[in-house]
């Protein structure tokens, strides 16, 4: 049975969970994810595995409490059995000794870049980390990413913390100075497409991790379909890691915006519960 052994609050609404899962801990590699459902009535959500200790049989996840299921997960008491956890799923990242590499992340993408940077460092590369955020409040996991890199550059768009620059500007500076062999990016599509442009010019290999909705992790429902290099692939089968140079980010962004608009337009109206009505009335 899976249960949460330890919880640590890392920031506003961000928690680190250590979960006992011996079988998953033996197999999980950096870049893979698990599907986790805290209760029988909750939806299973994908979360990337941040750290594995096979000898203890523990996997570490970092969760940002933004939705219903993530809140349920964050509020689970210790040692309470979780309803289900399936994994490890997705393609794993295979680190090689390359030389100098850059790991870029924005927002909560920092949780996904953490195992990648660590494995690259363990493989003997010099890892230059870049974290970007809008403001200081939206900069997550900086103390956790720092030890996984040899050098960490942090930029905020409004200059409230460290350098006043976006992640892509910081990467541009690094690419101008250093001899980089690989760039790995996780985060917003804008940032990834900008960096892909730069690396394409300099012919530097580039890997990106994309996020897509996953319902079943078994390649049956096709809700994770995504267009890569002009052909449809199933994200849960062939992702979440893709070659950045093959991606058509404009197309992806356009499609994502259209879906976003469609969802907001046709989102089912939630029936108002009695307590909610009471709250609304009380506010007035």
């Amino acid at each position: 049975m899976f249960s949460i052994l330890n919880k640590q609050i890392l920031g506003p609404n961000i928690k680190r969970l250590d979960i006992s899962a011996p079988l998953i801990a033996q197999k999980a590699r950096p870049g893979q994810f698990v599907m986790i459902a805290p209760f029988a009535r909750s939806e299973a959500i994908p979360l990337s595995v941040v750290k594995v200790s096979p000898e203890k049989g523990i996997i570490t996840l970092i969760v940002q409490e933004i939705g219903e299921t993530t809140q349920q997960l964050g509020n689970m008491p210790l040692n309470e059995p979780l309803f289900s956890m399936a994994g490890p799923l997705g393609k794993s990242f295979r680190p090689e000794k390359l030389g100098q590499v850059v790991c870029v992340a924005t927002g909560i993408g920092a949780a996904q870049i953490l195992p990648i940077a660590q494995s690259l460092k363990d493989a003997g590369n010099k890892v230059l980390g870049v974290l970007g955020a809008k403001t200081r409040r939206e900069l997550f996991l900086e103390p956790q990413v720092r030890p996984a890199c040899h050098q960490l550059f942090v930029g905020t768009e409004d200059g409230t913390y460290q350098q006043k620059a976006t992640a892509s500007i910081l990467v541009k500076k690094i690419l101008g100075k250093e001899d980089i062999r690989l760039v790995y990016a996780v985060g917003s599509l804008d940032m990834m497409s900008e960096i892909c442009q730069m690396t394409k010019e300099k012919q530097i290999p580039m890997l990106v991790q994309l996020d897509f909705p996953i319902s079943c992790p078994t390649g049956v429902c096709a809700s994770c379909r995504i267009k890569v290099g002009g052909r449809w692939v199933l994200g849960c089968e062939e992702g979440p890691e893709f070659d950045g140079h093959q991606m058509d980010f404009d197309d992806l962004q356009k499609r994502r915006d259209a879906w976003e608009e469609f969802r907001t337009q046709h989102q089912p109206q939630e029936a108002m519960s009695l307590s909610k009505m009471f709250l609304e009335a009380w506010k007035k």
């Binding site: 009535r41 909750s42 939806e43 319902s215 429902c221 096709a222 499609r255």
Partner: peptide
């Protein structure tokens, strides 16, 4: 946007495991 596959629609509403599908329908 707005195109679903049949399997996707049925799997999503059943995987969401909502108690009351009339109240909390998971798809637009």
């Amino acid at each position: 946007a707005g195109v679903y596959y049949g399997r996707e629609l049925l799997m999503k509403i059943h995987l969401a495991r909502q108690k009351n599908l009339m109240k909390n329908f998971p798809m637009a």
